[in-house]
Structure formats: structure tokens, C-alpha cells
Design a protein around this nucleic acid. Sequence first.
DNA 1: AATCAATTTCAAACCGCTTTGGACGCACCA
DNA 2: TGGTGCGTCCAAAGCGGTTTGAAATTGATT
Lengths: 345, 345
Amino acid sequence: MNLKELARKLGLSPTTVSRALNGYPEVSESTRARVMAAAARHNYRPNTRAIRLATGRAMAIGHVIPIASRHEIMNPVFADFIAGAGETYARSGYDLILSIVPDDDEDRIYRDLHARGAVDGIIVHGPRLNDPRLRLLDDIGFPYVVHGRATGTVTPYSWLDVNNRRAFRRATEFLLDLGHRRIALINGLEFMDFAIRRRTGYLEALAARGIAPDPDLMSSEEMTELRGYRAACAMLGHDRPPTAFLASSMIPGLGLRRAIEERGLRLGTDISVIIHDDALSYLPNGDDVPIFTATRSSVREAGRQAAEMLLDIIAHPACAPQQRLLEAELIIGQSTGPVPAPRRS
Amino acid sequence: MNLKELARKLGLSPTTVSRALNGYPEVSESTRARVMAAAARHNYRPNTRAIRLATGRAMAIGHVIPIASRHEIMNPVFADFIAGAGETYARSGYDLILSIVPDDDEDRIYRDLHARGAVDGIIVHGPRLNDPRLRLLDDIGFPYVVHGRATGTVTPYSWLDVNNRRAFRRATEFLLDLGHRRIALINGLEFMDFAIRRRTGYLEALAARGIAPDPDLMSSEEMTELRGYRAACAMLGHDRPPTAFLASSMIPGLGLRRAIEERGLRLGTDISVIIHDDALSYLPNGDDVPIFTATRSSVREAGRQAAEMLLDIIAHPACAPQQRLLEAELIIGQSTGPVPAPRRS
DNA sequence: AATCAATTTCAAACCGCTTTGGACGCACCA
DNA sequence: TGGTGCGTCCAAAGCGGTTTGAAATTGATT
């Protein structure tokens, strides 16, 4: 069932039918009603391919997920982000096209998506320090929104980010207020922008209390359970082990907890831990009482908002780049407590 | 830069240029070379929208991810599956379009995707008992491949699945051989097909040794860390607690481990655990020596193969439905050991 | 009754590619 | 010499919508 056929059935021209369905004013309300009814009856849906060609719009957004080609780690945070973005697209009639791309091949993909006219805009995932992709996207004239920011980029661009610096500064201050002085940071890879900001917040809080950071208490790794475990083991084996940890996400946080409990230490009394909680649906941080004290910000909500921002930019290309900074809330769970009396070992 | 323009620059007709680029024989090799060179020079890429309209093919595959509308849990296993499928699509010039859909609205989405001509085929995720989607897809004539199977469906259909029954049967037998008799099963939700099969395998192994299953040792929950923890807590608090556990995935397995270690029990000596390991990139099961003894099957590889199967079906619609059953390997880690001597409590 | 503007409808061009059904030139053969 | 077949290339008709510019209809005004 296509437009022409529907028009024939109605004894109208395709033009009129098209206008009736798309809400143009130059068609009487009575015929519009007739057309709508007929369309519903034959459950007619305009062919997406034809619309796209005729209007020149792809009605689709590209999400390009970089995969570190060496390790092939897929960041599962994307799953919830995309679930959020998908809700927005569904409401607006956009499709979401997903490319998983080795990070040494991203340029080609962006160029391709543009030249082929496959998508109207792009969500940039996993921005890095001085990320070259933003320059590239500006050059080819693609509307885009960055999930996160790219330290080092000077030209303005649209982004949506969590206030990572402030979140980690507050978390560190919270631990300092509890009396902790040896606070470890289990961070993501340092070329990732979010990791840089989190470290900055951590260092700021330490500096404000006149505490010199100890490189032995700072690790930067891929965010897997195993890496969190390993890093924690190394630090807990230190001759002056930390009394508290900050972890970049729930996943290394689980490894961290394993390392702690394996040593017979109790979370929240012997060792304090604060994680960043992206509110992943499959890794809930407890329900009533959070397990981990955490800086929390829903990545799914971020997905929703980033998608809205991008659609807005596509609809109003003349507007200046948009930015939105989400604040993480510090939620108190069972994994933090006052620094214990020094152990006599 | 489009076909017409490129043709004009070359002094050829659009027809010839199109044929040259698409490898048709009715064009001399010399002009083909000329055309190819010019196309590369102006980095011409045919407009996807136009190709799609002209050929009637969408050159895109739809992945419809159902979200339980009540809980909004996004199964993170999809992330790695899709990463695998994406590799296949990238090689074949297909796009991957992703819809995250509340499970009470799936019908509409499938109908829509078809009527709009947005995709050429569908990967069905998370099949359930008597899943009505397969009937629907057959009715509307959509090529599809199911990741998993749908017990209760009688008409043949294409699927790719892990041999869940055999995997869990072997795992259970392995525990039985170690002397365990009280073996608990922490399963996924029971309307999910994979959960049914795993339970079947588990029950078969018990029955073969003449052991009656204990309903108190079988739980069916969403596969989150917290649910795994809760289920394990309840079972370990039982007056005849299990000496071994089977967990449906790494994620509830982590919660299970937490419950065990929280009680001062040691994994692999006091309590044995076998999980199903989907080989998720962000939750590696150790590296040299696996942490968990596990039934392992890479879901990423499953994604690759399912995608290939679907592309093949689309290319050869006349063929009979295809099936592929992947065997999980049983890998021995540090989480299993002989049943401990009964505790005198 | 003729004029005019507003309302409603339509024919045709267009989006950028594929594909059908020739056209053209040339060598080959009878 | 004229037909046949082959190798190259092209004009034009789709694909299924949107959109422009004009025509037909209607009602009000003069």
C-alpha cells in the first residue's frame, strides 16, 4: 500500500493525500479526515526510503561507539545511554543507527556516514583528550553532540556531561571529613576525558587540605572488574595502604570490594569506598539503602537529554552550540565510615 | 558530488558510471578504470537513500531489544552481541538499526519497520516461551534470526543458540562428581527460553543421579548483581544450605560471591560456584586462570554468526530456515572444589 | 452578470540512484 | 553487400514520496 494507490482509492491526487497526512493547511478538514481514516484503515505507512530521498533528511541519528582495537572492550555504559537516547528518538520518529568501530578507523566511518547521507547527526561517545573527531565533524559539517567533553578543544561545540570534577571533589572531601588521609583513586584510562576531570577533582580536594597526592594510590585502567581487583590488591599490599578508595564506576568497584573482603576487611568500617554510579539498570546499587556510597548520575537520563539536544540542533542549525552540565548527587550508602584507628601491625 | 555530476565530468552517462562502479560486465575495463579513478579522486560515495529507494532494499538490519516495561532493565549482554553483529554488518555494507522497545509494544515496532521498509531483516533478542513474535514475523514475511530459541514454537524458524541444556547439565554433573548433593540454581526469569533450558539441564543431571530437586534451591530472577546476592543470602540461610551454586551469568554471580564471602565462606573450598560466562568484554573471568569455573560461550561470536546467518537468509530467501547450536565449553576455574566435610554446627 | 480573492485540488518536476530496452559501431560471415 | 552478433554505451522509466506552481472551484463583492 503506497501513496499513489491510496490516492486512487480515495479519488484524490497523491499531492492532496500527502498534504492531508502531513498536516498542511491547504486541504479542507473534511477531506483530511477522510484521508486519515483511509490511511488508518489500510494501515498505510509512508515508505521511509522514499521520504528520505525526497526530503533529503535521513531521519536517523548515528551513534559511533569506539572500541579500543587492542582490547576490544565494549563499555557497557553505552547500553543504558543508548536506551535513554532511543526513547527520545522513538518519540520523534528517528531511527538510531549504531556503528561499533575500532578506534583507528573512526574517521572513515564519520566521512562515510556523511557522504552516504545515512544519518542527520552524530552522538560522539567516549571523548578523549584533544579528541580529533570534533575537528573532523566540524569540517564535514555534521551536527553532533558529545557525551562528555574533550579537554583541549578550543572551538565551541555541543556537549552534555556530568560534572565529574565536582563530583569527585565532593566525594574526596566527604572522605577527608571522615578523617581519611590515605585515599586511593581507581580511575579509568587517562586519555579519556572523564578520567582526567575526575582526577582533577580528586587532586583539588587533596590540595585544599594540604595533602600531597601519592602516585602509588592512583591507578588508571580499563574499567573492568578484574582491573579494579588488581589495582586494589596492589594498593592494599602497600606498606602504607589506603583507608579509602574512590572508584570510577560500579564495575571496577565490584573488583575493589572483592579485594577488600578477600582480605577479611569490612567495607564501610575497615575500608571506605565511594564509587561513581551511572545508575546502570543491571547493576543497581542496592535499592532502599545503597550498598556503595556513590556519586550518582543516571547515564540513561543523559542519553535522553543528549538526544533531545541533538534533535534540537538539527532542527535549528543556526543556533549556537549547546552545553549542559549535569550534577551528580552524592548518596550515602554503607560503604563509608570514619577512618578506623590505626592498626598496630 | 553525485552520480550525475561525476558522469558529466567524465563525459559518460550516469548509466555507464553506475555500471562501472558496480562491476557490471557491459562496460570496458578501460572505462571502468577511468571511472573508478575519478570516483576515488572526488571521493564519491553513492547516496544511501537513493540506492535504497532504487533497489528496494534497506541495506539495514533491525535489532529490537525488548525492555521489560515494568523494570526497565537493559540486558548488558546485548552490548557484546551487537558488537559482534556489527562487525559482520560493517564487512557487508549493512547498517545496524537499533530499537529499544517496551515489551508490550513490540508488535507495532515490527509492523512499522516492515511497512516503512526501514530494514531488510530482524534479529530477535530475548526469545520467550511460546514467543508470539515469531508468528508475527512469519505473517508479515520478515526474514529473521532468533538469538536463542522459543520453546513451544512448532513451525521451523532460523535461530542461533548456545546449548544451554547440555551446558548446565554438564556443569551440574561436574558438581555432582565433586560430591555435591545440595546444588542451587540461580536462574534468569523463567519465561525466558534460555532459563527454561538451563533448568532442564540442571534437573536432568540431578534426576540421572536420583536426586530430587529442592524448590528452595531454585530461584528465578532478573539477572542483576543484587538479585544474585539476595537469592544466595536466602539459600545460605537455609537450614540445609547448598554446598554449590550454578548461576546464570557473571552478573548475578558477582552478587553470589558477595553473599558467600560476606559470610566468611571461601569460594572454591567452602562453597563451589559455576557460572555461565558470556565472555563479556568488560567482565572478563580472570585471564590466565579463570576465577569462576564456568560454562563459556562468547556472545560476541554469537552476534557475528547470527548476523552472517541473517544476511545469508536475506540473500537466499528460498532456502530453508537455518539453525546453529553452539556448544559451551566447561572451563575449570578456582571457584569449584570437592564438597567439604559436613560442618558441625 | 462579471470580477476577484480565497479555498481546494492537481499535474509535473524532483530527490539520486538502478535497470530495462534499445542504439551505435565494428568485425565477421555468407 | 547485407545481415548477424558482439561489445559499449546511453536515454528514459522507474523507486515512492515531497513540493512547486498553476488550475479549478467556490463564495463574496461590485
